[in-house]
């Protein structure tokens, strides 16, 4: 064919429609904002109930995760993500969705290789690189402290 791959790539970009930008940005703001506000509401309630701040945010995390799991099971969370995009993926609820969705889907492949392995499909990388990056930063901090810089 006369057209080369580079030119084709540029051409495809030209003819491919994209998401309308502003509506999706607005919806991400709205959904992300609402989820964080609900988180704040939880935390405030627990603090007012006499819990320490750390414990209150742990409770908040748990409640958000549980809500996301239930909404995913009822097939509602995918709709929230479809509407809100990053607004529903960025909060901890998005993480919970990524854990429960494969667990439910791969149940048919068994407890070990189905649920056990696939539950980490998306969560696994998040946990791995989260732990790894904080470990690397810890090593750097440790070395800097040893040299008395920090």
């Amino acid at each position: 064919m006369e057209i080369n791959k580079k030119a084709y790539e540029a051409y495809v970009k030209e003819v491919t429609p994209v998401h309308k930008r502003w509506p999706s940005i607005f919806r991400a703001f709205l959904v992300g904002g609402i989820i964080c506000t609900l988180g704040q509401l939880c935390t405030s309630l627990f603090i007012n109930g006499g819990f320490e701040k750390e414990v209150a945010s742990a409770w908040t995390t748990l409640i958000l995760i549980a809500s996301s799991v239930i909404l995913t099971g009822l097939n509602i969370y995918p709709k929230i993500v479809k509407f809100g995009g990053a607004g529903a993926l960025v909060p901890i609820t998005g993480f919970a969705n990524s854990v429960v969705a494969p667990a439910v889907e791969f149940k048919s492949e068994g407890q070990i290789f189905g649920i056990g392995c696939k539950i980490f499909t998306i969560a696994g990388p998040v946990i791995l690189y989260g732990i790894l990056s904080s470990w690397i930063l810890g090593v750097i901090a440790y070395v800097l402290m040893a040299f008395g810089i920090l």
Binding site: G32, C36, T37, G39, G84, A86, G87, I122, V126
Partner: peptide, 29 residues
């Protein structure tokens, strides 16, 4: 504050996703 800050963080990521086609898994990492 929670609404606006949380919303804005999501906006930044939405823009990033729209422009780079990064898959959600990569975004989370």
């Amino acid at each position: 504050k929670a609404f606006v800050v949380g919303g804005l963080i999501c906006v930044v990521i939405q823009i990033l996703m729209d422009n780079t086609k990064l898959m959600p898994g990569r975004i989370m990492v």
